[in-house]
Nucleic acid binder design. Structure first.
Length: 313
DNA sequence: AATCTCGTCAACCGCCCATAA
DNA sequence: GTTATGGGCGGTTGACGAGAT
């Protein structure tokens, strides 16, 4: 692997400038790259990733684009902690299939193989090794090392768990990813002059009434008419994407100047702040006051929407 | 306050397989 | 049959934040 040494990061920081344009970029994705990828896939669809990377104007490998889309940008991704039900399912499936993460992920809608793999390595495996009296868990782990069973014989795994209810332990806090984009959201709101203090414990913000903003962000489905249009011609869509990208770029530049957000944090998580999964629980949704709404991406409808524009102060 | 340690997770790598030319 | 290409998978790395010291 091409390690992200200091020099690599310096090179990364030069991205987009003349002289390094021909190089295949690595490292964290920027908002601009995310938007390019989303825009292209929205219009043209997935697949042919190497071609897609070039056509979208991304200096990334096709693999990298696919990974970014599948693991991070896909609109049907589920956010938030792995629930107790999901954990049980992961344990069961891992006991049956071993490290077949993609296969396991197919049974957990909205979860990626990468997410499950990370969860297993960082949480479950630790639990298994740490709790010597957990016969069930240890059995799962041991079985996983030599799984040869017939998946069809396993009961209770026939369908996705549509209703995900956070367990008591899950209610205790948010995942790091969640926290990251909540923080970023907070910075965006601060930048736009919105009062939205984060609570100290969970860093959740107040939930507002049903708003276009929440729908735009994917917190709520569009049930009635959007403010202006929820269907835009491609030209208009592209223009709005550019406006949106420009807005975010401005915001991140400002943050970088102020040192409010670390550059890597912005690069890695910024898109999450505005690209929310439609499956994101409304109870965890943030309120984006409509009088400060801009051009936002509606992940649910795969469209961009325009709300009342209010330029940053 | 400074430093250390650990947990988390995005992103990468290498390998493999399927398909087309 | 061989080669090139695209894509998927599992394993690994390293940045970063939070808590501990």
């Amino acid at each position: 692997m091409n390690n992200m040494t200091t020099s690599s990061w310096e090179g990364f920081s030069m991205m987009g400038k003349q002289g390094v344009d021909d190089e295949v970029r690595k490292g964290p994705w920027t908002v601009e790259e995310d938007m390019r990828l989303i825009r292209y896939i929205t219009v043209h669809g997935e697949g042919r990733w190497n071609f897609l990377a070039k056509a979208a104007g991304l200096k990334r490998s096709g693999k990298s684009c696919r990974l970014r889309w599948v693991n991070y940008l896909r609109p049907d991704l589920k956010r938030g902690n792995i629930t107790a039900d999901e954990e049980r399912l992961i344990l069961d499936l891992h006991a049956r299939w071993g490290n077949r993460w993609s296969r396991i992920a197919q049974r957990l809608p909205g979860r990626t193989d990468n997410e499950i793999k990370n969860y297993w390595r960082t949480r479950i495996k630790k639990k298994l090794h740490g709790s010597g009296n957990s016969c069930r868990a240890n059995q799962c782990f041991e079985n996983s090392m030599s799984s040869t069973s017939n998946p069809n014989s396993f009961q209770g795994l026939n369908g996705p768990q549509e209703s995900i209810t956070p367990s008591a332990s899950d209610m205790g806090g948010l995942s790091e990813a969640d926290k990251n984009y909540r923080r970023t959201f907070h910075h965006i709101e601060e930048y736009l002059g919105i009062e939205a203090p984060m609570s100290s414990s969970t860093e959740k913000m107040d939930i507002g009434a049903s708003t276009d903003s929440n729908r735009l962000l994917g917190f709520e489905p569009w049930t009635a008419e959007p403010s202006k249009s929820d269907t835009m011609p491609h030209d208009a869509l592209a223009a709005d994407v550019d406006s949106f990208t420009a807005l975010l770029s401005e915001f991140y530049s400002e943050m970088a100047r102020e040192g409010t957000v670390s550059s890597s944090s912005m690069q890695a998580n910024s898109t999450e702040a505005v690209l929310k999964s439609p499956n994101f629980s409304n109870s965890e949704a943030l309120t984006w006051p409509s009088d400060h709404s801009d051009v936002l991406w509606n992940m649910q409808d795969h469209k961009f929407h325009t709300l009342a524009w209010s330029s940053a102060p």
